[in-house]
């Protein structure tokens, strides 16, 4: 136990402060304000992999790591679409996931926001839309509010995209 405390003490807080040197400054403050204003301080996101290569998932995870710590802005990832405010969808929508994605969308209470994350979600990416196993980009299957480009988008891009979506 002592060693855990020692390690915590030694490493200190690595969470990037909202300083002028990084983009997180503007982003973080804006995001926090928007979350407070529109979502009473708490935005729940349900991440849905609709066919991604799992690269996008790694970067969604990274937004939760101690450097970005997206939770400090009131944003957290939830286990069920039933209490989500936003769906964060990755991947081209595979034929085998089309139904599950639609059902997840239907299970999310309105008003709901949908963010399509990654080049695949935006336009099927390297897998191509003329592919028998791909049902289409996310916007072909469910209504999309914001698209985040990148393969995969960086954690900062993701935070930016989420902000854009809630600012409407």
């Amino acid at each position: 136990m002592l060693r855990i405390l020692h390690q915590i003490f030694k490493i200190g807080t690595v969470t990037e402060p909202l300083s002028e040197s990084n983009q997180l400054e503007i982003l973080g403050t804006q995001l926090e304000q928007a979350v407070r204003k529109h979502f009473k301080g708490s935005l729940a996101i349900r991440a849905v992999d609709a066919g991604s290569c799992n690269g996008c998932e790694l970067e969604v995870h990274a937004t939760n790591n101690p450097y970005y710590d997206i939770e400090r802005f009131g944003v957290h990832f939830t286990a069920s679409p039933r209490f989500a405010d936003m769906l964060l969808v990755t991947g081209p929508v595979s034929c085998n996931m089309e139904t599950a994605l639609k059902m997840t969308y239907d299970a999310t209470p309105a008003p709901k926001l949908v963010v399509a994350m990654g080049d695949c979600a935006a336009h099927c990416g390297v897998f191509g839309c003329d592919n028998y196993a791909v049902a289409g980009a996310v916007a072909d299957i469910i209504p999309v509010d914001v698209i985040i480009h990148g393969c995969p988008p960086t954690p900062t891009d993701i935070i930016q995209g989420v902000l854009k979506a809630i600012q409407g």
Binding site: G51, N96, F127, V134
Partner: peptide, 11 residues
Amino acid sequence: LGYVHKGIEKA
């Protein structure tokens, strides 16, 4: 499994 089948071999 098979939910994220994206036809990679064909593509």
